[in-house]
Design a protein around this nucleic acid. Sequence first.
RNA 1: GUGUCCAUAGUUCAGCUGGUUAGAACGCCAGGUUGUGGCCCUGGAGGUCGAGGGUUCGAGUCCCUCUGGACACCCCA
Length: 422
Amino acid sequence: MKFTSIKGTKDILPGESHRWQYVEQTIRTVMHTFNYREIRTPAFEETALFARGIGELTDIVGKQMYTFQDRGGTSLTLKPEMTASVIRAYIQHNLGEQQPLVKLYYCAPMFRQERPQAGRLRQFHQFGAEAIGGQVASIDAETIALSLEIYRKLGIKPITLKINSVGCEVCRPPYKEKFKKYLQHVYNKLSEESKQRFDQNPLRILDSKDATDQTLTQNAPLMKDHLCKECDRHFAQLQSHLTTLQIPFIVDGRIVRGLDYYTKTAYEIISSELGSQDALAGGGRYDLLVEELGGKSTPAVGFAAGIERLLMVMEKQKVKTNNELMPLLYIASADDRGKHWALEQAMQLRRAGISCEVDLLNRSLKAQMRDADRQKALYVIVVGESELAQKKISLKEMSSGTERSISLNDLMTELEKIHTGI
RNA sequence: GUGUCCAUAGUUCAGCUGGUUAGAACGCCAGGUUGUGGCCCUGGAGGUCGAGGGUUCGAGUCCCUCUGGACACCCCA
């Protein structure tokens, strides 16, 4: 094969694209009911935007982004996440000047340059929401409710919400020291990976998959128990809001975010149906990012969720989605006159919003019938000299095989009647 | 970046320790029914066995390299 889709990318073929449409439509509907408005940003940005937003020294920026130089020598990067782009647009267009709280959502492809694995492709799709301009915990609760509502509406069931607070620039640094001190005396027993983490991102040791690491950190101090007054109050309020909204949650002090700009709320939505990549959605508060990217200090909170993983769960749970739209009518033709008529009639029907198909391969009637069956057309008519002469056709319902004779002139109104009945 | 497994018709797969012309099912095309789908019957098309190199009288089968895929690690947006 000469050309194939490149590593880690996938074609979404007709057999499954309707599922995507269904999911996207549901996302848009729910986002609208929460009064989030869509934002679309370019597929790529200046590399520096993500480097600044995510952190220059992280692995993500160092080796996991799709980065390239354009002809002018500028370093560009295909967006690995939306938050940085959304905030960039928020600052660039002064959206905060128009209203104090800006609620935005998106649903778009993202890119990462990594070895693909289950639920993690190089081009993947995420939806998400960002609420920029408020520090009140009810906004955090709203974004959580929003993401859960989308899953509820889609009908996927056993999912777990885990929440945590990662503190702020006041309480996190001293906690971090305390945590490192705690681990210092067991340093040698840590896994090789965790020894690495100890210097780079020690808190990550908390969600290590290594069994020994897990035992070693069993009684380690957790951020949620060392929050400053403000963060502690915020976290308590969040929990109270979730309870009010009757949203079950688990406080999990081991949830860690990889990026420094996160503050206070951090949460994950997990599905046990997935493999090693089991997070359906993740989010949290990032009160420092807007300022970090050059705007004025503005609190914000949001989440991002993977669509591929969502579809995997729906597939596993055999969740019912919409059916693919099929043609209402297949016009089979018995001879040349019939073919001419079919082409012309199809055009009129299509203008009237009725989906129909005609024989475009000059095939035998039997082949046309087989095709109508395969295309899952609801109705079939066969047109030839005699029908046109008598101005009568028989309208055949494919599912039952029953036919009824109608006047040619009534075809359009008859089909419209059926069409509105579906 | 690391590790494990995998690669044969359109699809899912079979092909025993190397041995003639590489098979099946489903799908596709046509006919049985000269104007009616599904079920059935008959026939047909479709493969440089992922690519390149090596061992051998002989390689789909053994060895090496590469490419691609799956899963996991690292990382996690």
